[in-house]
Structure formats: structure tokens, C-alpha cells
Amino acid sequence: MSPEVFVDVLREALSMVILLVSAIILPSLFVGLAVSVFQAATSINEQTINFLPRLIVTLLALSWGGHWLVQKLMDFTFEMVDRIPQVVG
């Protein structure tokens, strides 16, 4: 395997990981930020208030986007399997 092919496969794999993780983490990040702004505005210093909304949004993102996430992962896997002759040869 040439270094160029290895770097290309690694780059595609890392971009896929970033895409899949960001689809789950970004909604939770925005909800956590909104709850933190609300806590700062109302002077509520309870740390557990931030946990439940983020958990619910993460679970909703997984349930609503799960089909898309699995489809992207399957497409990537099939593409990598199709590239085996290029990598080996």
C-alpha cells in the first residue's frame, strides 16, 4: 500500500467520524449552552439542571438521525470494501 492511499483512507475515515459524532454532539452542545445562559440569567446554580435536557436532546438526535447515521456508515464501509483491490494491489 502506498502512503498516498493510506493517507486518503485515513482522511476519509476521520472525516466520517467527525461527521457522525458532530450530528449527535452539536444539538446537545446548543441545548447545554441555552440552559447555561438561562441559569446565568436566573442565578440558578444547580448543576443537575443542565444534564437532563442534554440527555433528552442526545437521545432524540440518535433516534431521529439514527437511520441517516447508519446509512452513512454503511456507505463508507461498502466504499472501503470496494477499495480493497486498490489498497492491496
Results as ranks from 00 to 15, higher is better:
Met1Val: 04
Met1Ile: 07
Ser2Gln: 09
Glu4Trp: 01
Glu4Met: 01
Val5Ala: 02
Phe6Glu: 01
Phe6Leu: 00
Val7Arg: 07
Val9Arg: 12
Leu10Lys: 03
Arg11Leu: 12
Glu12Trp: 14
Ala13Pro: 04
Ser15Pro: 03
Ser15Met: 15
Ser15Val: 05
Ser15Ala: 06
Met16Ser: 03
Met16Tyr: 02
Val17Asp: 02
Leu19Tyr: 06
Leu19Trp: 14
Leu20Cys: 02
Leu20Asp: 01
Leu20Thr: 03
Leu20Val: 01
Ser22Val: 03
Ser22Asn: 09
Ala23Leu: 13
Ile24His: 01
Ile25Lys: 06
Pro27Glu: 00
Pro27Ser: 01
Ser28Trp: 02
Ser28Phe: 06
Leu29Arg: 07
Phe30Glu: 05
Phe30Gly: 02
Val31Gln: 02
Gly32His: 00
Gly32Glu: 04
Leu33Met: 08
Ala34Ile: 13
Ala34Gln: 03
Val35Phe: 08
Val35Leu: 00
Phe38Trp: 04
Ala41Asp: 05
Ala41His: 10
Thr42Pro: 08
Ser43Val: 05
Ile44His: 08
Ile44Leu: 11
Glu46Gln: 13
Gln47Ala: 07
Thr48Phe: 09
Thr48Asn: 11
Thr48Gly: 11
Ile49Met: 12
Phe51Lys: 05
Phe51Ser: 08
Pro53Glu: 06
Pro53Met: 10
Ile56His: 08
Thr58Val: 12
Leu59Tyr: 04
Leu59Gly: 15
Leu60Phe: 15
Ala61Arg: 02
Ala61His: 02
Leu62Pro: 00
Leu62Ser: 07
Gly66Trp: 01
His67Leu: 12
His67Tyr: 10
Trp68Gln: 10
Trp68Pro: 05
Leu69Ile: 15
Val70Gly: 05
Gln71Pro: 05
Gln71Leu: 10
Lys72Met: 12
Lys72Leu: 10
Lys72Thr: 04
Leu73Pro: 12
Leu73Phe: 15
Leu73His: 04
Met74Thr: 15
Phe78Gly: 03
Phe78Cys: 08
Glu79Asn: 14
Glu79Thr: 13
Glu79Ala: 09
Glu79Trp: 13
Met80Gln: 10
Met80Pro: 00
Met80His: 05
Val81Asp: 07
Asp82Cys: 07
Asp82Lys: 08
Asp82Arg: 14
Arg83Lys: 13
Arg83Thr: 03
Arg83Cys: 04
Ile84Tyr: 03
Gln86Arg: 08
Gln86Val: 05
Val87Tyr: 05
Val88Asn: 04
Val88Met: 12
Gly89Phe: 11
Gly89Cys: 03
